[in-house]
């Protein structure tokens, strides 16, 4: 049972407990996008970085608590890191992705707001891409690849929780995106429409087709000369 301190408060946790989990038991919520307690942590969004007194900051969702560890969850350095990460994610994030209905608030936008981070100005010099496209082929889930931050939550929700094993990744570099089966449109894949991917998705990348509106009209993908605000 290693004991550690988080922001000066000490706690003893079972061996194998992550720093993020230890902090949560103390009531300290470390901001996170890619992690959810129902999923195996993968440590890809890096928002949960903490300072354990080492040269490098460490991702608390995957780093296991060690005996005598002194964890700091906030500092100027950490705040700057998180701001940089979020601004990068927001720089080509669609403000109002497609015709979406989320069952929970957009975690990226609300994290940005909670951390007092303004939407980066297009003049700010961040690279901004567009055109990763929308997949409106499913009757129930709308996929806005532009809003996807590749946090891997849907992949784990589909593969490890529901064990439907439909969602994976495809492409390299900036062109990396989630894919269904062997990169089929979602509606033609072996997806069983359980909705787990929308439930775990922290952004507007996976949302529900609005029940009252029927199938999405997919304006954003069809009328490409309309810029979505």
């Amino acid at each position: 049972m290693p004991s550690l301190t988080v922001d000066g408060r000490s706690i003893e946790v079972p061996a194998g407990t992550t720093i993020w989990e230890a902090a949560r038991r103390l009531g300290v919520e470390i901001p996170v996008l890619c992690h959810d307690p129902r999923l195996e942590p993968v440590g890809v969004c890096r928002l949960c970085l903490v300072d354990v007194g080492e040269k490098k900051l460490t991702a608390s969702c995957v780093r296991v608590a060690e005996e005598g560890m002194e964890v700091r969850t906030s500092s100027e350095r950490l705040a700057a890191c998180r701001q940089g990460l979020i601004e990068l994610l927001l720089s080509d994030y669609p403000a109002r992705p497609a015709d979406r209905y989320k069952t929970a608030p957009d975690l990226l936008v609300s994290q940005a707001r909670d951390l007092g981070i303004r939407w980066p100005s297009p003049a700010g010099g961040f690279p901004a891409g567009d055109g990763r496209g929308i997949d409106a082929s499913s009757k129930v889930i709308l996929v806005d690849h532009q809003a996807c931050i590749l946090c891997d939550r849907c992949v784990r929700g589909c593969d490890d929780v529901q064990v439907n094993e439909v969602i994976g990744r495809t492409g390299k570099g900036y062109a990396t995106r989630i894919a269904f089966d062997l990169d089929q449109p979602m509606g033609q894949s072996t997806c069983v429409s359980c909705g787990e991917c929308e439930k775990v998705c922290p952004t507007g990348a996976l949302s529900l087709v609005r029940p009252e509106r029927g199938a999405p009209d997919a304006v954003a993908s069809a009328d490409t000369d309309w810029e979505v605000l």
């Binding site: 109002r96 608030p105 297009p122 605000l229």
Partner: peptide
């Protein structure tokens, strides 16, 4: 552009 950004943030807040 700045105004659109402001509008966009407000819009997001309003929607939520």
């Amino acid at each position: 552009r700045d105004a659109i950004e402001v509008h966009r943030e407000r819009l997001l807040g309003a929607v939520e």
